[in-house]
């Protein structure tokens, strides 16, 4: 991330009349990024973030770069951000459309949580898939009955969709 981009974005801010909370969070994300995660606001819409999560070490997603989109709705932080994987991923809690099954994005959302905490939770979900609370049923099924094969699939998908692009 270059500082030019940040400046450009700051100018856009004044126009957009963003809540102070979003400005503060964005500044912090740019100045002290979370290791392994980049989140950059869109030039045209400061509520829309381009996110890249690196696959955690010792997980089947290691070596992959996963693109996500994150959008802060009008009533953020009273409502949770909307987050979705754009890169295809073989994971029991992420479905074909990239939707994520994560409690803090739904009923466990608290206005005291931040973009940063959400992204950290998603990274943790990649390290520790939870097939007992599935969103992608076929993936979860395989994960439970044949973990070895499921992990091989996840690695294969990571190689195919999340590397060199």
């Amino acid at each position: 991330m270059c500082w030019d981009a940040l400046d450009l974005w700051r100018q856009g801010l004044i126009m957009a009349d963003l809540p102070r909370r979003i400005i503060k969070e964005t500044q912090r994300l740019m100045q002290e990024p979370v290791p392994g995660i980049s989140a950059v606001p869109d030039d045209a819409n400061a509520r829309y973030f381009h996110v890249i999560v690196t696959g955690p070490e010792d997980s089947p997603f290691e070596g992959g770069l996963f693109k996500l989109e994150l959008f802060l709705p009008e009533d953020y932080p009273m409502s949770a951000p909307k987050v979705r994987f754009i890169t295809k991923i073989y994971h029991p809690n992420i479905d074909r459309l990239g939707r994520i099954c994560l409690d803090i994005l739904k009923d466990k959302w608290s206005p005291a949580l931040q973009i940063r905490t959400v992204l950290l939770s998603i990274q943790a979900l990649l390290s520790a898939p939870n097939p007992d609370d599935p969103l992608a049923n076929d993936v979860a099924e395989l994960w439970k009955i044949n973990e070895g094969e499921a992990i091989r699939n996840a690695k294969e998908w990571t190689r195919r969709y999340a590397m060199d692009n």
Binding site: D75, M78, S79, S110, P111, A112, L113
Partner: peptide
């Protein structure tokens, strides 16, 4: 913030179930 939190919950039809804003509370 409390007030906005209540409004967002009420719009979703939640009333007696409105919880504290703090995480894990």
């Amino acid at each position: 913030c409390w007030c906005m939190h209540f409004e967002v919950q009420i719009i979703q039809g939640i009333s007696t179930g409105i919880g504290c804003m703090a995480q894990d509370c």
